Simulated scan of single mutants.
Amino acid sequence: MSPLTRARRLAAGEAPVYVATRLYDPSGRYLGARLECGCLRGLRAGLEGLGLEGRDPLTFLPFRDSNSALQGVPTEEFSRAIYDLDRDHIERGFALLAPLGDLQADSGIAFEVGYAAGVGTPAVLLWLNFFVLRYDGTEETLLAPPLLSRLAARSENLGAFDLSLRFDGREDYLRRVAAALDEAEAAVAELCRELVLRPHHPPPLPAVAPAPGRVHLEFGGGQFETQRCWAARLQAELERAGFAVSVSRRYEGAGPLLERAAADLNAAAASELVVTLADGPDVDGETAALQGYARGLGRKVLLYSSGRRRIYTGPEYDHRHNLMLLYSADRTVRRLDEVVPAVRALLG
C-alpha cells in the first residue's frame, strides 16, 4: 500500500492510530489520554500538509474505546471480545504508539508491539524513563530492551524528567512534573505529524516459512539462571520426543544484543509453535512481545504459567495475566511436565 493510500485511509477514519494503554494502572490511562491529545494534533497537522481533512476516528484508545463499543456483551464473553476488538484495530491501524517505562515493560503493551510488527503495522516506542539500559559483557547502552527495539519502527525517549534537579518545595515539584507531561504531549504531536508526512515501516519480516514440527522456546532470552535451567530441561525433553527445538539466547554468548535479538525473532518465525514463559510478577516484556510477534505471523503459541495469583474484577475479568497474553495463546499449561504432551497435541 502506498504512503498516500495509507494516509487517505487514516483521514477517512478507516485506520486510526492505536494508542496503547496500561490496563491496570489509572496513571497509565491518564498518560494514554494525554498522549492521544498530542497524537490527534499531530495527525491533523500532517493530513493538512497533504491536503487531506481528517475524519474521526483518527485514534483508538483501548479501555475507553473498547469498553464503549462492547456495551451489552455478555459478561463471560466480555474480555474475549475486548481482545478481538483491540487486535482488529492493531491490524488495520495506521501505526501503534506504545508508551513504555520502568524496568518491567507492560506485558500487554509489549504484546501489542510484537503483534503490530507481525501483521505489518509500524510500532513506535515512547519511552518515559530518565535512564537508559546497559548490559554486562557487551557494555552496550540501549534505550529499550533489545528485542523490543528490533520490533519497533522507531523509538523515542520522552523521559526528560531529570532527577539531578533541585526542587523548590511541593509547588515547584508539581509544576515541573506537569511541564514534563506537557513536553511529552508536544513531542508526540510532532512525531505523529512526521509519521503522516514521512511514513515509517515495520522491520522486514523474515522470508522463511515455519518448519513443520519445529518448536521455539522463549523463556526470557537466558537473562536469568532459572530461565536457562528451565529452557535446557524442556529442550532436552522435547528433543527426546522427536521435535526440532530452538531457544532464545539473546543474553547468552557474544555479539551485539540487537543482532542476537534478531536471531531470536528469526528462530521464532521459523518455528511452527512457540512456547513462552509467563512466570513472574508480570510476563517479561520481551517475552510478551515475542509472543505477540509469533501470533501476528500466525504461529501457534503455548503459554507456560505456573503462578497461583488471579487478577479478579468479577466474572468479566478473572485471569492470571493480561488478556492479550492469555487469549493469544492456543493453550496454557501450569506445569513443566505438561509442556511436551501439550506440544504433541497442538502439532498433531
Rank of each mutant, 00 (worst) to 15 (best):
V124F: 14
G42C: 07
E316F: 12
V247H: 00
L326T: 09
A211I: 15
P212F: 05
E76K: 08
P122R: 13
T138N: 11
R9W: 15
S2A: 15
F78S: 01
R170G: 00
A152Y: 01
D84L: 15
A81L: 02
R228L: 12
L148I: 09
E185T: 09
V208R: 08
E14C: 04
Y30D: 14
F224S: 07
S305E: 14
S66K: 09
L133Q: 12
R8M: 09
Y83P: 07
G169I: 01
F94Y: 03
G220C: 07
P199D: 07
L217Y: 04
F131Q: 11
A186G: 06
A81M: 02
P16E: 03
L277V: 11
P281M: 11
C37Q: 15
R198H: 08
Y83E: 13
R64K: 05
L181S: 09
Q291T: 04
D172C: 11
A45Y: 08
Y24K: 08
P315N: 08
A268W: 04
L100H: 14
E252N: 11
R299S: 04
R8A: 15
A267Q: 08
G101C: 13
S68V: 05
E259N: 14
G169N: 10
V113R: 02
G169C: 06
E77S: 10
S248N: 10
F131I: 10
S66M: 07
V73N: 01
T276K: 13
E36Q: 15
R55P: 00
A20E: 07
L148T: 05
T21I: 11
H89M: 11
G292A: 11
A7M: 13
Y327R: 00
G54T: 00
L346G: 12
F219N: 03
R22Q: 01
E156F: 15
A241Q: 06
R170S: 00
A152R: 04
F63Q: 10
F130G: 13
E36P: 02
N157P: 12
L257W: 07
S328M: 07
W230I: 02
R55I: 01
H319M: 15
R29N: 10
F243P: 04
Q71W: 10
G72W: 06
L70N: 05
Y24A: 06
G101K: 15
R308D: 00
P315D: 03
L273F: 07
L35N: 02
A81T: 01
A178L: 08
R8S: 11
L85I: 04
A345G: 08
V73A: 07
L265Q: 05
P203Y: 05
D25P: 01
S164A: 07
A11R: 05
R295K: 02
P74Y: 14
G49S: 13
G292V: 08
Q227S: 12
Y312S: 09
D56M: 01
G28P: 07
G137K: 12
G298R: 03
E190H: 06
G285V: 15
F243V: 01
L47I: 14
A116E: 12
M1Q: 06
R240G: 00
Y327L: 04
D56V: 00
A241W: 12
E190M: 10
A342V: 09
R92D: 12
L97V: 14
V333H: 03
T75H: 06
R55C: 00
D337W: 06
T5L: 03
R150G: 03
A110W: 06
H216D: 04
F167Y: 10
E252K: 14
K300V: 06
